[in-house]
Every structure is written in C-alpha cells, then in structure tokens.
C-alpha cells in the first residue's frame, strides 16, 4: 500500500504550489492512471513517489515506511526510453540487476524471461540506436520488470509513439499487468488510455493543484475500446475533465 499524506510541492521559483495537500492511497496490485492537462504537475507527482525529488511538505509511505529517496522498489519508466546508448539491449535489461548484485546466471535467466515477454529476444544484442521507438519502450519495460519492484511508475510511456505502436504496446502492457499483478501508476494525457488500463483514474487539476476527480473503472478485462461501456466511461470522464478545463479558462478570463 502506497500512501500520500498532505503532500505539497512548491518549486522555489514558482508563484503557485504545483501540488497542494494531496491525500491518496494506492492499494497493492492496483493499476492507477493519472490524467490531467500538460503542466498540471503529473510528472512532479510521479517524481515525488519515485523519490527523485523531495516534497515541500507532507509524506509518502510505502507499506508504512516513509520514502526518503529513490529505491529499487519503485522503478520508473519515462516518455523517452532512457535506455543507455553505450549498452546493448540485454545489458540494458540486466543493468538494474547488476547494480543490485544479482548473480550473472540469474540475471540472464530473468532478462531472458522478460525479453521474451516483450518480444525482443531476437534483438538482445542490438544497440539502442538500432531499435524503433516501440522497441525501445519494450526494452525499457523489460528492464523495469526485471527489477521485480513493488511499484512500477510510468510517465507517459507511450505518448511519443505512433498510434499503431501505441495500441500494440497497450495490449501488451495490459496482458503483462494481468500476468504480474504489479502495482502500476501510469501517467497519461489520454483519457482513453486511462480507461483502458486503470482500476481507478485520477484527474489532477492544475487549478486546485490537487486531485479533482476519481473514477473507478469497473470493466472486465481484456477491455475493448469500442465497447459501449468503455465509451460511456470515456465520455463521462472527458465531460468532467472538460468542465474543469473550462472552469480554469473562465477563471483566467475573469482574472485577465
């Protein structure tokens, strides 16, 4: 269980707090998606959970223990793959295990397993620059999964990919999540993507610098984006998000 308590983030040179008093509980094994306009603080929130930045106030507890820095129990994936260009695919995938002194044989076994899972076994000796965008994200996913972390943090992992690749990777991630039952927190600006993955969608509002909406997605898996129920959820959330955005625009007009 991950717990955020009165979490605030105020950057030194910013006028307003980016995050204000966020309280949130994320149960183990759940898939949570955070949506919101760009610049509303999604990445900031994820970086805080990762421990890459420290909050201005408030705390984050993982299984009751406060988080004070980054750790291998919370692996993060980014929009750009962040794979290391000086290593091969296999070496990249093994990187985290090597850092954590996993024996070589074990590394290869685990890496082989996850490379299979993301369909990259044939490309294990490729260099990063020889991979397509989708393959890079797959490799990054395998690298993250190898860590066997409690939580997987994903910051818009598919938003730099084309539509077709995105769809393919979404299917794969949904499957992988069902196989591994890992706690995943995924940031996206696509409501469709959020409804596709999430047990629960959180809407982060720039205006309130807090979570302005929470939607439990009670749909069977695998989910189909064309199904009427799916579309209903998507419309619902989009409608409320749009209201929120209009409120902000209105407020800005009044102010300006």
């Amino acid at each position: 269980m991950l717990e955020l308590q009165n979490l605030c983030m105020q950057f030194e040179n910013a006028k307003h707090a980016t995050l204000k008093n966020i309280n949130l509980q994320i149960p183990e094994g759940s898939f949570t998606c955070i949506v919101g306009a760009s610049g509303c603080g999604k990445s900031t929130l994820l970086n805080l959970i990762a421990g890459l930045t420290l909050p201005s106030s408030g705390s984050i507890l993982l299984d009751g223990q406060p988080i004070s820095g980054p750790g291998r129990d919370r692996v993060m994936m980014f929009q750009e793959s962040a794979l290391f260009p000086w290593l091969t695919v296999l070496e990249n995938v093994c990187f985290g295990m090597k850092i954590n002194n996993v024996p070589k044989a074990k590394q290869l076994e685990i890496a082989g397993h996850y490379l299979d899972m993301v369909h990259l076994s044939r490309f294990r000796d490729y260099r990063v620059h020889e991979l397509s965008g989708g393959m890079k994200q797959r490799a990054a996913l395998a690298r993250a999964l190898c860590m066997d972390s409690k939580i997987l943090l994903m910051d818009e992992p598919f938003s730099a990919l084309d539509k077709q690749t995105t769809n393919l990777l979404r299917e794969e991630l949904a499957q992988i999540w069902q196989q591994t039952k890992k706690t995943i927190i995924l940031i996206t600006h696509s409501v469709e993507e959020a409804v596709f993955f999430a047990d629960r969608v959180l809407f982060l509002s720039e205006e309130t610098a807090n979570i302005a909406g929470e939607y439990v997605i009670d749909l069977p898996r695998p989910r189909h984006i064309e199904s009427p129920e799916f579309i209903r959820y998507r419309q619902d959330i989009l409608y409320q998000v749009r209201n929120e955005v209009e409120k902000i625009e209105h407020a800005e007009e009044m102010a300006g």
């Binding site: 421990g51 890459l52 980054p70 750790g71 919370r74 290391f84 990187f95 985290g96 860590m147 943090l153």
Partner: peptide
C-alpha cells in the same frame, strides 16, 4: 534522464558515477 532512470533502479554513489555518469559523459 539516465541518472534518474538509474537511481530508480537503485544506483547511487560510485556505481552511479562509474556505470552511468562516466559512460554517458564519455
């Protein structure tokens, strides 16, 4: 981003310097 990714995988100190920062800067 290399440093960020490595840190979330548990790299710090001299491992971060020699396995990530140094090769990235090569």
């Amino acid at each position: 981003i290399y440093v960020k990714a490595a840190r979330t995988m548990g790299a710090s100190g001299s491992k971060l310097i020699f396995r990530v920062i140094f090769p990235a800067a090569l």
